[in-house]
Design a binder for these strands. Structure first.
Lengths: 343, 343
DNA sequence: ATATGTATCCAAAGCGCTTTGATGGTTGAT
DNA sequence: ATCAACCATCAAAGCGCTTTGGATACATAT
């Protein structure tokens, strides 16, 4: 059933039927109701492609997920982010178009999505420091919101980020105040902007207290379980092992915990661990008492808000650029304690 | 730059330009090259909405992800599945449209996606036993491939599944042969088809050896880390604790391992654990020697293949329905051993 | 009686593409 | 010279919708 058929069936013009369904005022009340009833009876819903073509809007938002290599990981926090964003989209009648691409094609994909008219806007995932996607999107005029930020990017843009620097500053400071001096950092990949900021927070907390961080204890890598395990293991074997540890994600924290158990150490008593917690639905940080002390910020909520931001900027393009800074919650769990005296 | 502009700029008709770019034979070779050069110079790529409208095909596949409740988990294996499918789509010029919806709206979303012409086909995720989505899709005539199967569904359909029954049959048999008699099952939600089949395999292996399974040791739940922990903990505290354990996912296996450590038990020596392993990129089962003995099957590969199946059935609609059955690999790891004598 | 609104409705153009059904120009065979 | 058979190109229709710019009828004001 299409508009034309519905219109002839009702003995009305396409114009009137269209206006009746789209809530335009110049339609008689009775007519409108008659049209709406007929539409739902016949299960009519306007063809999106045609509507898009006519209005020039595609009612879809693009999410471009970069995979650095063919076999590289799909960042699991994307799943929750997208779940959050997806909720907002479906509530507002938008579609979510997902492109999984290699890094070479990434820019091309954005501009193609735009020039093909497939999307009205995009969310930029995983910004690196000095990311050139942002400048490029500004140039071609495709509306976007960045999940995270990119330092060294000229010009303003819309973003939503958590205060990574402060979160890791606080967490590190907490450990130092507990007496820890040798603190390891299992950071994410440090070409990613968020990881750089966390590193900065880690360093700031040391510096403010006049403590020299041990760079041998600072690692960077993709936040897998395996990375948490393999990065921490050699550190624990060393004679000058760390007494505390900061992790960039729950997943690598789980790997780190495995290494800790395997080394015969006990969390909190022998070694303290603080992790960032994206509040992933399948990897909650304990039910009553959190298992890990953590800097917590829901990535799903971030997805919801990011989606709202891009939709708002589409509906009112003249609005000034929006930025949202979320503070991570500092959650005290069972994985931290005073530095062991013996070390 | 659109087709019309490109055509007048070249002094050709829209027809010729369109045919030149789409590889139709009735275009002079020189002309074709001239057109192609101009197109790439001006960065022309045809508007997808318009092309869709003209051809009646939208070049997009829909993935509908059901969330049972507002706050329920986003199944993390979706992420890898979609990464796999996405690779196939971008290689073939297809878009992936993701809808995250509550369970009530699910059917409506499928038929809307179809009647709005937003997608050419869909992938059905997370089939339940006797799932009515399948019949419904057959009724409205929207091409689809099911990731998994649904028993009790009348009529044939295309699917890709792993042999869940056999995988869990083998794994259970292996444990029994090692002398284990009290084997726990931490299954997924048992209204899901895959979980029912795994349960069946678990029971079959017992029955074939004339052993009565202990139903008190059989649990079902969403496969989170927390579930693995909380479901196993009371079982370990009981006087008749299980000596072995089957897990439906790596994530709950990680939770189970936590409970095991906390109970002061050691994997393999005191209690054996076999898990299903979807080969998630961020949660690999060890690097050299697998940490868990596992039934392994890459969900990312499944996504790739599912996508290929739906694309193939779109390009040749008269092909008979395709079904793909993958056998899980049985991987021997460090989490299994003979049943402890003392119990 | 004429002019001015006002409330409803409609015909037709247009969005950017593909595709059908010509059209003119060459070539080779009759 | 005539016809058929291509080859290369084009004009125009059509995909299903929105939207512009009237049209019609009726009520109200001059």
């Amino acid at each position: 059933m299409n508009l034309k058929q519905l219109a002839t069936h009702l003995g009305l013009s396409q114009t009137t039927v269209s206006r009746a369904l789209n809530g335009y005022p110049e339609v008689n009340r009775d007519t409108r109701e008659r049209v709406q009833r007929a539409a739902s009876e016949h299960g009519y819903s306007p063809n999106r492609r045609a509507r898009s073509l006519a209005t020039g809007r595609s009612m879809a938002i693009g999410h471009v997920i970069p995979l650095r290599t063919q076999h590289e990981m799909m960042n699991p926090v994307f799943a929750d982010f997208i779940a959050g964003a997806g909720e907002t989209y479906s509530r507002n009648g938008y579609d979510l178009i997902l492109s999984v691409v290699g890094p070479r094609d990434e820019e091309a994909v954005y501009s193609e999505l735009f020039s093909k008219g497939a999307v009205d806007g995009v969310i930029v995932h995983g910004p690196r420091a000095g990311d050139n996607r942002i400048e490029m999107l500004n140039r071609i005029g495709l509306p976007f919101v960045v999940h995270g930020r990119a330092s060294d990017t000229p010009g303003p843009y819309s973003w939503l980020d958590i205060n990574n620097r402060r979160a890791f500053d606080r967490a590190t400071g907490y450990l130092i105040d507990l007496g820890h001096r040798r603190i390891a950092l299992l950071n994410g990949l440090e070409d990613m902007d968020f990881a750089q900021r966390r590193r900065q927070g880690f360093l700031d907390a040391h510096q403010r207290r006049g403590i020299e961080p041990d760079t041998a204890l600072m690692c960077s890598g993709e936040m897998t379980e395996m990375y948490g395990y393999e990065a921490l293991r050699p550190l624990l074997a060393s004679s000058e092992r760390p007494t505390a540890l900061l992790c960039s994600s729950m997943i690598s924290a789980v790997g780190a915990r495995r290494a800790i158990h395997e080394a015969g150490l006990e969390l909190a008593r022998d070694i303290s661990l603080i992790t960032h917690d994206d509040d992933l639905s399948y990897l909650r940080n304990g039910s009553n008492v959190p298992m890990f002390t953590a800097t917590k910020s829901s990535v799903r909520e971030a997805g919801r808000t990011c989606a709202e931001m891009i939709l708002r900027s589409l509906s009112s393009p003249d609005l000034p650029l929006q930025t949202t800074m979320l503070e991570a919650e500092f959650v005290l769990g069972q994985s931290t304690g005073p530095a062991p005296a013996s070390l």
